Every structure is written in structure tokens, then in C-alpha cells.
Computed example of a mutant assay.
Amino acid sequence: MTRTKVALVGIGKIAIDQHVPALNASPDWELAATVSRKGSVPGVPAFTDFATFLAERPDVPVVSLCMPPAPRFDYAQAALLAGRHVMLEKPPGATLAEVHALTALAAAKGLGIYATWHSRMAHAVAPAKAWLKDKTIKSAHITWREDVRKWHPGQDWVFEPGGMGVFDPGINALSILTEVLPRPVHLTKAILEFPSNRQTPIAARLTFSGQVTADFDWRQEGLQTWDITVETDSGSLALRMGGNVLEIDGKAVAGESTIMGEYPALYARMAELVRTGTSDIDLAPMVHVADALTLGRREVTDAFQF
């Protein structure tokens, strides 16, 4: 089977840890080029300038963008104008308006665009959604606590405008929540903790309609916590390990104790979109983040340094 050529743009930690292994193992894709000011992948043609790549490699029909969200719009727009399908790392942009504009441009050009949410591809998300489908939700709670120094070492951009702060990981939880709940919820209250020297929050406490709450924190050392619990009229559900393990009434019933299946599933979905000439854009998780930043009460906490 002929594999589709793809270029990976932005060779940082997430690209090396997740995108490259997923592409190398895929029967659908050939990693044909990289674009990055500093990073590269051994054995893959490397470019440092995106315009040069677009001009010199018309044979690569798909671009996967892995750089931070703030500069991503210009790259995605250039790729679409050059006739390339586009895959967007989460969150799909720095603003909702950017993503709406890209979606319209892709439609006008007859190209596919994919706003990926890797946590929705976690092993236990689909069975959790199926179990909750006919249940009445009494309450739900997200606990999403991790160490920013481990996952974004020295990456100051996460605390700059557009970097989203703790919502960079928190949006993963929201992508699962919006996928598995049988009915949508909306934000009603948010308390956001901003380090005194930073522009984005390091912690957040959220309240939604339907007795749904969330606790995000980027200061947790040691064991990391990525849990969602749901109480229903027919028992309790828990998603552990970022959606990869499903428990019903305290007993593990589905999933695997690994996060390494998420990106292969994303690229399989992108291959399907390219074959069918369609797009997949769901902005529900990003809407919740925008609402939190709109409604959130700001609290100042200790300065943060990497």
C-alpha cells in the first residue's frame, strides 16, 4: 500500500515523543520532511523555513503542525493556500476565531483540516462514552494535576498570552468530558490562580452546569493525576490515566495502562479524512477554556520559575 507523505512542523518534545513514533509505526504515512528552527529527525529531510519547504516539496500533500498555538495560524493558513491538508496539534489555535477562519479556508479550497484531541483517543474513552450513554448524570469531577517542569521543561511560552497555562493539559480533560457526557454542560464559575510573574494561570477550579466540577493544577510533583469520576443513577464511573483505564463501581473493566495508543489513532483518523476529503473540527473543549478565561476570577499566587 502506498503511504501518504506528511511533513512534521515544529520538532519539539511532543513531536519526538509522540508524533514521530506514531508516524514510523503507521502503514498510512511516510514522514517525508520536517520543518523546525532547531530540531530534526535522523534520516528525514529537514527545513528551517516553512515557505521554502512549501516551494520545494509540492509532493508532500499533508502538513502536521506541532508548534505552540500562538504562531500556528500563519503556518496553517500558508499550508492551506499552498493546497496542503492540515493536521493541528491541540489546542487547534490561539483563538476560536483563528480556527473558524482556517475551517472556512479549508472548505473553500476543498482540503481537509483536523483539530486533534489526543486524549479522546485514550483506550477507555469510547467504552466510557458507551456506558454513560443511557445514564442520568448526578455529578462529575475532574482532577488533573501534573508537573509543568516535567512536561514543559523551560518552555516559557506556556505562560505567555496564547500559551494557555494550566489549560494546556486541562483542555485534554475537557476534551474527554465533552466526548463522554451524554448531554453538554456549560461553565458557570471559574477561579484562576496566576503566578505573580506570569500571564497565564498555573491552577484553575471550574464549576459547570449539571453538578460538574474540575480541579487543574500544574504544580504537582511526584505521581501525576489525570482522573475523571462520574456518579450516575446506575453506579459510578472513573477514568484513570488520562482516559486510558475505565473503572465501573471501583473495578477496572476496560483500557490499558499506557498513553502510547493516542497518537497512532489520531494519524489513522487523519488518513481517513485525507482519503475522504473531509474535515473534523470540534471546538467544544476550547469553548470551555475561553469561557473560563472570560468568567474566571483572578487570584495571584507565588511567582513561578522553571
Rank of each mutant, 00 (worst) to 15 (best):
K5R: 13
G10Y: 06
I11R: 09
I11S: 07
A15D: 10
I16W: 05
D17Y: 04
Q18Y: 11
L23F: 08
N24R: 10
A25L: 09
A25T: 02
D28Q: 09
D28V: 11
E30V: 13
A32N: 02
V35I: 10
R37E: 05
P42G: 00
G43V: 08
G43P: 15
V44D: 13
P45C: 11
F47E: 01
F50Q: 07
T52E: 15
T52Q: 14
P61I: 03
V62Y: 03
P68S: 10
R72D: 04
D74Q: 14
A76N: 02
A79S: 03
L80P: 01
L80K: 01
G83M: 06
V86K: 00
P91E: 02
G93N: 13
G93A: 01
V99I: 00
L102Q: 00
L105T: 00
K109I: 01
G110P: 03
H118A: 10
A122N: 02
V125G: 07
V125D: 09
A126L: 05
P127R: 04
A128H: 03
K129A: 06
K135T: 11
K135Y: 12
S139T: 09
S139Y: 15
A140W: 02
I142S: 05
W144M: 05
D147A: 14
D147N: 10
R149F: 04
K150R: 13
W151F: 13
P153A: 04
G154Q: 05
V158E: 04
E160K: 15
P161S: 06
G165P: 12
V166D: 01
P169I: 09
G170L: 04
L177S: 05
P182Y: 04
L187R: 11
N197I: 12
N197P: 10
R198S: 12
P201E: 12
F208W: 09
S209P: 15
S209T: 08
G210Q: 02
Q211H: 11
D215N: 05
D215Q: 03
D217P: 06
R219N: 02
R219Y: 02
Q220M: 13
Q220Y: 03
E221H: 15
E221S: 08
G222D: 09
G222Y: 07
L223A: 15
D227C: 02
D227H: 03
D227K: 11
T232E: 09
G235M: 02
G235E: 02
L239A: 01
L239Q: 10
L239D: 12
G242I: 14
G243C: 03
V245H: 07
L246C: 08
D249G: 14
K251E: 05
K251A: 03
A252R: 12
A254I: 05
T258L: 15
M260D: 11
P264W: 14
A265E: 00
L266V: 10
E272P: 01
E272M: 15
L273E: 12
V274L: 14
S279W: 00
L283P: 00
A284F: 15
D291A: 07
A292Y: 03
G296V: 01
V300D: 12
F306N: 11
